[in-house]
Amino acid sequence: MNVDQVKANKGKKKRNRLIFRTIVLVILLTAVVYALVSTVNKDVTKVDVGSKAPDFTLEQVNKNNELKTVKLSDLKGKGVMLNFWATYCKPCEAEMPYMEKLYPEYKEKGVEIVAVSLDATELVIDRFVDQYDLTFPIPHDKNGQVMDAYGVGPIPSTFFINPEGEVVEIVVGALTLDRLEGYLKQIQPK
C-alpha cells in the first residue's frame, strides 16, 4: 500500500465518521423537537378546573335514550357530568348504579349525565348497558379523540361542567353515592 492509498483510506474514514455523527445529531434533534411539541400539545389540550369544556360530538350507544348523538354544546344551559369509563374498569362498574339511581331526579333538575365509553367495541358496551339497565346517554369515543381533548389519564375520570360550559370540578377515581350527589347539586342550574 502506498502513501496515497493510506491518505485516501484516512480521508474515507473521516468522511464516514462525519456522516455518522451528522446522522446521530439529526436523530437527536428530531427527538428533542418531537418531545417539545408533544409536551406543548399536552399542555394545550388538558382541561383544568375553570376552563371551558371542549365541545365534541359522539354517537350514542344505548338506544333507549332519546339522543342519537351527544354534542356537548347542545347541552348548554344544563349542568353536565361528563364521565369517562370502560366496561373492564371495576371502579367504573361500581359507580354506574349510583349514576343510574340519581339520573332521573337530576335530569328533571337540569343536569345531564353523559358517560363516554372508551371500550374497543360497541358489543361489550351494549351488554354492559343491558346488564345495568342504564338510561343516561352513553356515547362511544371510538378513536379516543374526546379522551385526548380532555387529557384523561386513569379511569374513571369525571368532569363536572356548569350550565355556562365551564369545568368546576374534576374527579379521578370512583365516586360514592353521596359524593356524586354533592357534585351534581353543585352544577345544577339555579
Rank of each mutant, 00 (worst) to 15 (best):
K14I: 15
A53W: 02
M96S: 05
V168P: 05
V80P: 00
V33S: 08
Y103I: 11
W85E: 02
A149I: 05
L102F: 12
A120E: 15
N65L: 02
M81N: 10
G79I: 01
L177P: 06
P91H: 04
V152M: 04
D148P: 04
A86P: 06
D178L: 12
K13W: 13
K190D: 11
G151V: 05
R17W: 13
A35E: 06
L18C: 06
K185E: 15
G77F: 02
M1P: 06
D148F: 11
Q188I: 09
M81Q: 10
D43R: 14
E66H: 08
P54W: 01
K12N: 15
L177D: 14
N83Y: 05
Q145M: 10
N62D: 06
D178E: 11
E112A: 07
G144Y: 03
P189F: 10
E112W: 06
C92P: 04
Q186Y: 10
E105L: 11
I161A: 02
K107N: 12
Y150H: 04
N65P: 01
G165C: 03
F128A: 06
P156D: 10
D141C: 04
I19C: 06
M99K: 11
V26F: 13
D4R: 14
V3R: 14
K109V: 09
I170A: 03
E59R: 01
S117Y: 10
L58Q: 01
K63A: 07
V26C: 08
F20K: 14
V124N: 13
L18D: 12
K63C: 00
K90H: 12
L58G: 00
Q5E: 14
K185N: 15
T158Y: 03
M96Q: 10
M147N: 11
G79W: 00
E108S: 12
K46A: 12
S51K: 08
Y98M: 09
A174F: 07
D55H: 03
S51P: 00
T57W: 01
P156M: 06
E164L: 02
Y103R: 07
K52R: 07
P104H: 05
D4G: 10
V49A: 03
K52Q: 05
V6N: 05
Q131F: 12
A174E: 13
V171K: 13
D74S: 08
T158D: 04
T69D: 01
K109D: 03
L67K: 01
K142N: 04
L180H: 10
V116P: 01
N65H: 08
P139T: 00
K109Q: 11
V32W: 07
